[in-house]
């Protein structure tokens, strides 16, 4: 069940990703409509994070291409934002919450330019949107997990992008933060922004998203939540791990095979 759309925000064409020579994603082919709130869902090790990292060019792809707003990735950098997993950085870094949010402005500022007054105002406004205005001068290690996640979100907001990638933004956050974040994401998509979220929890998936991508090393489904989030497809994603596929992956890695004949 893979539904394609006209004028996609994001087009992934036949994307294959290898990790240490081991194929982790096979031939992903999908398109996403503007203004959707997309959930990428699949079991552990399905390659959910790898998919978005590869789309953003953080992980090299073996084959295929990605087009964002019908342009190449590098032409669209200014319109893309990223919320990495919270554990991916060292929170003991000497910086305040406001310092981190200001980093969201760096792409717009360009090299060598210092943040201007307007950038500070945008950053503070973004902190307010995530309910963290009272913590702007707090050292980031003294924030709770949920607060740190909010700071990351504020940093992405400060970028004023059109396409957002978020890697497990609900992992390890308190219930009120989760509620605040999803509320914010909905408002963003209502304004025509597209948000793609790597998500772990099946329970909340139908409530949160209007577009679902089911992933388990290969693309199982991509479409509106009503058509893509069905029991049969979930069964295929979670129950039916293709043993043969992972065996071949292991074999490719063991023999150091190239992922494509050149």
């Amino acid at each position: 069940m893979i539904q394609h759309v006209e004028n996609p925000v994001l087009e992934i064409h036949d994307l294959t990703v290898t990790y240490n020579k081991k194929p982790v994603l096979w031939g992903i082919d999908l398109t996403l409509p503007a203004g959707s709130l997309v959930g990428i869902i699949g079991p552990n090790g399905a390659g959910k994070s790898t998919l978005i990292k590869s789309v953003m060019g953080l992980v090299p792809s073996g084959s295929g291409y990605v087009r964002v707003f019908d342009k190449t990735l590098d032409e669209s950098r200014g319109r893309i934002s990223y919320v990495p997993q919270r554990e991916s950085v060292d929170w003991d870094f000497p910086a305040s919450a406001l310092d981190i949010v200001l980093m969201g402005r760096y792409g717009k500022l360009g090299l060598f330019k210092r943040p201007r007054k307007a950038d500070y105002e945008v950053a503070e406004d973004c902190l307010r949107k995530v309910g963290m205005e009272g913590f702007k001068n707090r050292q980031i290690s003294q924030l709770s997990g949920g607060q740190q996640q909010r700071v990351f979100l504020a940093r992405a907001l400060a970028q004023e992008a059109d396409l957002y990638f978020m890697d497990e933004p609900f992992a390890g956050v308190d219930a009120s933060t989760e509620k605040a974040i999803i509320q914010l994401l909905r408002e963003m998509t209502q304004k025509g922004k597209t948000v793609i979220v790597v998500h772990h929890d099946l329970q909340s998936a139908t409530k949160y998203f209007n577009w679902i991508i089911l992933l388990n090393m290969r693309l199982v489904a991509s479409g509106p939540v009503e058509t893509a989030f069905t029991e049969a497809l979930l069964q295929e994603t979670y129950g039916g791990k293709l043993t043969l596929l992972s065996d071949v992956s292991d074999l490719v890695q063991k023999n150091q095979f190239p992922s494509r004949e050149k």
């Binding site: 990292k53 953003m56 060019g57 953080l58 590098d74 950098r77 200014g78 893309i80 934002s81 990223y82 990495p84 991916s88 980093m103 969201g104 760096y106 792409g107 090299l111 940093r155 970028q159 990638f165």
Partner: peptide, 8 residues
Amino acid sequence: HFAQVIGL
């Protein structure tokens, strides 16, 4: 990673 994504 964030630096890379925003095009630095």
